[in-house]
Design a protein around this nucleic acid. Structure first.
Length: 847
RNA sequence: GGGCGGCUAGCUCAGUUGGAAGAGCGCCAGCUUGACAUGCUGGAGGUCGGGGGUUCGAAACCCUCGCCGCCCACCA
């Protein structure tokens, strides 16, 4: 890394500079956290990415945010652990592999369990590598020495320990209940894994005969489930039907006797007001059945086919059975009518199959105690949400929390640590027991169920640190400090981490939760591979560089609304990188390797830019600390481009060229600090440029975070006058059609001579010692400008018009006695000053 | 059925306790300015979704309507 500025090509090339830095940081051990460090700790456990195999926009966004926090805290003096990991994502992975197999004309059953597992492990290895390499490209400063996987033996032990602990508290039990059954995965899934989709179906109206004469009509969209009906329910106060309560209906096609019961859960106004009760296949029916002791009939096999022995529909897939049932009802004259009906149907989040609610015996985890602790923690302000409205989302869900179905009937995942001996005794243990503790039998079988993926994810903030062992990492880095995720997994994941953290560690796992926005495709649709609307961040990185993509991520991520992807914004940040690059070139061309400490700045532009730098550093810091990364980005961007480059560098170019050490020193100091301020967001270009500054031996990555307290309001006010004059002069020049340079400027004695000189220099005019007879009067200060060509005054006319209209508005407000009576004094005074200024400007322009 | 978010310039979005409407991109015009044409300068463009209200003053607070989008929810 030569410091010779001539070695810097005029164009910033992200590929060229990004290549080496990540490896250098890593080699230097800058990502590795020291548990024994005396510094305050800051921990982020990166949410384990779902095994999709590819980095998508959500990761780019989410990982960038966390990396910003991690890098910022390192610079601010913290010992930072940013821990990477991967999740086995049982149901998702199983689906991916099954799809691969299907493409090869195979099923997992044909392959066999062992070969299937081998194949899965290959996949994990491959995808793991991909994810790791993608985070490197993204520049995420992760501690790879602590990479964790939920299937690592140590992690598995943590999962088992949690299960056993819950079991010993009596919170885990096994019971039959209506669950969401995915017939394709042949597993139960939780309520949170069900996605509802609108279906256009048919509502069938069917007559059930009543014993002793008459009939009752019900409505259903799933006639095939009637084969498992065990009752009829009506509302107890429904005059149309209440005389039927206690009587018996005969189930068509089956002949089963169905008690008619009265239950308040029935809506009188919906359908026919009479409800067929199918406790084995509908959650509400199940509850009605429980209240009235109705029989539970399971009419469906795990693969979704009908389980109705003795009937002609036995073994048929549900939809086929539906057709036959409808035909047969029609033939018997029991199908009264069909109506189109639009409603929502549950689908499996992972494989999209239609969910069949059915009765099934499952492992359940009682949540009351953990829920209450989580609620208390929130009430005590232990967990802060950003944006804060998500706290309500979380609390609402928490309050309505029911027992968690933690069992899955999959091939992949953590096996439930429950064993049975051949005498029927049940054992629950972290390690597989050698013999039954009750009878000594050594023939033990493990329960076939695995755990919900989210059961293991819930332990992430401490299981990754070695829990249940009391490791140094756990001691040093728990609790974590922040967690950043997409809002769709607030309930699936964040809430559960909070609950288990409180339960096992006695402390919330993190103090801050950041929920980033969702990036939509440019047309507002969801970004998805299947829709073809996805944008691959790696393509963007290749095109614009990592820093540009990260800067874009920072600028949109905490948006209060979801954002539509706009590539031109990414491109804009690449240009910003180029701007920083060239600003550095300019300064280095003058300063070279000089490292002399400059004397204290006296010049107005020096004092001004240092003051602006100080304010910028405060704004950038506040933005990161307040999870408003867009504010940080905007502040640094505006300072670097619109103040440092546009004004300061233009003002000191001559001084730099002539070797003015003060200007060199100030410019270098601005660069040094703005690179520090931008480093968390744009690590590569800043590290590269910083390394080229004179006297740099170390990494920017571990340089100190700026804490500047040198605001100079007087310099800002005075330099503001310069800017106003220069801007006006530029306007006149263009309106007059004058060449870019040349012209005479006169500013009377009321304008400070420093201001006048600087304004003349920056506007490429010559300062005239004497008043000008001809020329254009100025609005900003008393004075005139004349250009070498005949000047039109069209601009002054337009300006006058605008000023006059402004003055009218301002005076109208000031003339309102109520305004004067009610508005704070400061506001009134400001308005009066403004009116005076406008009047003065009008005066000057009219002369 | 509940709840939340959004509607601001042609586009994508900012707008921090109410006190002169902003940025980037795009558009128009002018500039081979000794860092950068990935640049510089000037400019056009908005009755802040509609309608009420509170207030001296509303993009911002309240009500209401209209569209988008999301989350939660056992009405067949």
């Amino acid at each position: 890394m030569s410091k010779n500025p001539s070695s810097m090509p005029p164009a910033f090339d992200p590929q060229a500079i990004e290549a080496g830095w990540y490896a250098r940081w890593e080699k230097e051990g800058l990502f590795t956290a020291a548990a024994k460090s005396k510094k305050p700790k800051y921990t982020i456990c990166l949410p384990p990415p779902n095994i999709t195999g590819e980095l998508h926009m959500g990761h780019a966004l989410n990982h960038t945010l966390q990396d910003i926090c991690a890098r910022y805290r390192r610079m601010a003096g913290y010992e930072v652990l940013f821990l990477p990991g991967m999740d086995h994502a049982a149901i998702a992975t199983q689906n991916v592999i099954e799809k691969q197999l299907a493409a090869e004309g195979m099923t997992k059953e044909q392959l066999g369990r062992e070969a299937f597992e081998a194949r899965v492990n290959e996949w994990y290895a491959e995808v793991g590598d991909t994810i790791v390499s993608q985070d490197r490209i993204l520049g995420a400063s992760l501690d790879w020495s602590r990479l964790r996987f939920t299937m690592d033996p140590r992690y598995v032990r943590a999962v088992m320990t949690a299960f056993v602990s819950f079991y010993e508290k009596g919170w885990i039990y096994r019971a039959p209940r209506i669950v969401n059954w995915c017939p394709r995965d042949r597993s139960a899934i939780s309520d949170l894994e069900v996605k509802w989709q609108v279906h256009d179906d048919v509502l069938f109206f069917i007559k059930y005969p009543i014993e002793g004469g008459g009939d009752v009509m019900i409505a259903t969209v799933r006639p095939e489930t009637m084969l498992a009906d065990t009752g009829i329910a009506v509302h107890p106060t429904d005059d149309r039907y209440k005389h039927l309560i206690g009587k018996t209906a005969i189930l068509p096609l089956v002949g089963r006797k169905l008690p008619v019961v009265g239950d308040e859960a029935v809506e009188k106004d919906f359908g026919t007001g009479a409800l067929k009760v199918t406790p084995g296949h509908d959650p509400m029916d199940y509850e009605i059945g429980q209240r009235h002791s109705l029989e539970v009939v399971n009419g469906m096999n795990p693969d979704g086919s009908m389980n109705v022995p003795g009937l002609p529909y036995d073994g048929l897939p549900a939809l086929e059975a539906r057709r036959h049932v409808v035909e047969d009802l029609k033939a018997q004259g029991l199908l009264v009518k069909e109506e189109p009906y639009t409603h929502e149907v549950g689908h499996c989040d992972r494989c999209d199959a239609v969910i069949e609610p059915l009765i099934s015996e499952q492992w359940w985890l009682r949540m009351e105690v953990m829920r209450d602790k989580a609620l208390e923690a929130s009430a005590a302000g232990k967990v802060r949400w950003h944006p804060d409205r998500y706290e309500r989302t979380y609390l609402d869900w928490l309050r309505g929390l029911r027992d968690w179905n933690i069992g899955r009937q999959l091939w992949l995942g953590h096996r439930v640590p429950v064993y049975y001996c051949d005498n029927g005794h049940q054992l629950v243990a972290v390690e597989r027991p050698h013999e039954c503790t009750e009878c000594g039998s050594t023939t033990l079988t493990q329960h076939p169920d695995v755990l919900d993926t989210w059961f293991s994810s819930a332990l992430w903030p401490f299981a990754t640190l070695g829990w249940p062992e009391e490791t140094g990492d756990l001691e040093a880095f728990y609790p974590n400090n922040m967690n950043s995720t997409a809002r769709e997994i607030i309930n699936l994941w964040v809430s559960r981490m909070i609950m288990t953290g409180l339960e096992f560690m006695g402390e919330a796992p993190f103090a801050d939760v950041a929920i980033h926005c969702q990036v939509q495709a440019a047309d507002g649709r969801r970004m998805s591979k299947s829709l073809g609307t996805g944008v691959d961040p790696r393509g963007l990185i290749t095109k614009y560089g990592t820093d540009a993509v990260r800067a874009w991520a920072a600028s949109v991520a905490m948006s209060s609304q979801d954002v539509r992807f706009d590539e031109s914004r990414v491109e804009g940040y690449r240009r910003f990188c180029n701007k920083l690059w060239n600003a550095t070139r300019l300064v280095l061309a003058s300063a070279g390797d000089a490292t002399v400490a400059p004397p204290a700045p006296q010049a107005l532009e020096d004092r001004w830019i240092l003051s602006r730098l100080s304010r910028t550093s405060a704004a950038v810091t506040a933005g990161i600390e307040g999870f408003k990364f867009q504010d940080s980005m905007a502040a640094a961007y505006a300072f670097a481009w619109n103040e440092f480059c546009d004004w300061y560098l233009e003002a000191v170019k001559e001084r730099l060229r002539s070797g003015d050490v003060v200007a060199q020193g100030v410019a270098l100091s601005c660069l040094d600090h703005v690179l520090r301020l931008l480093h968390p967001t744009m690590p590569f270009v800043t590290e590269e440029l910083w390394s080229r500054l004179p006297g740099r031996r170390d990494f920017l990555m571990r340089a100190a975070w700026p804490d500047l307290q040198s605001a100079d309001p007087e310099a800002e006010e005075t330099f503001g006058q310069v800017m106003a004059i220069v801007e006006e002069l530029r306007g006149h020049r263009q309106a007059a059609g004058a060449p870019p340079r040349g012209g005479m400027l006169f500013l009377d004695a009321s304008t400070d001579r420093t201001v006048a000189a600087l304004a003349a220099r920056l506007s490429w005019t010559e300062l005239s010692p004497d008043a000008l007879d001809a020329g254009i009067p100025l609005g900003t200060r008393p004075g005139r400008v004349s250009f070498p060509v005949a000047a039109g005054d069209s601009r002054n006319k337009a300006q006058l018009k605008r000023l006059t209209s402004d003055l009218e508005k301002t005076e109208a407000q000031l003339a309102n006695p109520e305004f004067r009576a009610n508005a704070p004094f400061d506001i009134v005074r400001k308005l009066e000053e403004r009116a005076a200024e406008i009047r003065a400007a009008i005066d000057r322009l009219s002369t």
